[in-house]
Design a protein around this nucleic acid. Structure first.
Lengths: 124, 124
DNA sequence: ATAATAAACGCAACATTGTTGCATTTGAAT
DNA sequence: ATTCAAATGCAACAATGTTGCGTTTATTAT
């Protein structure tokens, strides 16, 4: 994987925030980048385990960089996400672990996606 | 709200399964129905509290009828959903309650969306 | 430093999902 | 049967995401 300007910019923006950003938000933050290239960059980063993808309460796809306070170096997304209903931002709550739960017989889990919906610290 | 053929069909299909179905799956199951009408029907049902909407692991919007084993008559979606990575079906686990969790200071929750990813009973 | 090459980019074109406006049809109540 | 609001279906549009392909660029070896 080559160190190109587009990739460096995306990494820079994502690593500087604890928010999960959508492709269009990212596109808007540096308007020089082609939409398709951005999609491919995000896909590459995700496959490389550098960022993770989550879908917010409204069905919007978002990507987040796991900072070093991420409990799991493999970025398996075992933390909780918080979706604010006012500002619509999505926070990675890196320290809130996904609770375990009891599944019915025959069902086996490989991951749990927990998205909390509510009002964030800044909108309260 | 009028009892029209389209609405009756949608209710019939959704009430006969414990799966959450996407608009296109519903459209395919009775090919006479206009896509737009279906979207509006689902929206109306959702606003009336008869069905609930959930986004699956792949970002696909799905709708499910809460059967009488649904723990909450207000359909507030306080149960867990299971998304099979093989058949891609989404099950309403009506008896598995959403676990509560501890949020950071300042964040308040109005709902938690839990989607378990894994292999279902039939694909195991 | 330069040339070679595989990777990344950007454009066109397309597919899917979802929404809105508007004219027409239809369910239900009189 | 008549009426009228509600529901439908069509056209048109917007947003999101993907693929093919020719061009550019970052790295690697010369």
């Amino acid at each position: 994987m080559k160190a190109t300007p587009v990739r460096l910019k995306v990494l820079e923006v994502l690593s500087a925030t604890h928010l999960a950003l959508s492709p269009s938000e990212l596109e808007a933050s540096f308007s020089k980048v082609d939409r398709i290239t951005l999609y491919r960059t995000l896909k590459d980063f995700e496959e490389a385990g550098m960022i993770h993808k989550i879908i917010d309460t409204d069905g919007v796809t978002r990507f987040a960089f796991c900072n070093d306070d991420c409990p799991d170096a493999t970025h398996t997304e075992d933390h909780v996400h918080f979706n604010c209903k006012k500002c619509h931002k999505m926070f990675c709550l890196a320290h809130v672990q996904t609770p375990s739960l009891q599944l019915p017989d025959g069902f086996s889990s490989t991951g749990i996606n927990t998205v909390v919906h509510g009002v964030c610290k800044h909108c309260a």
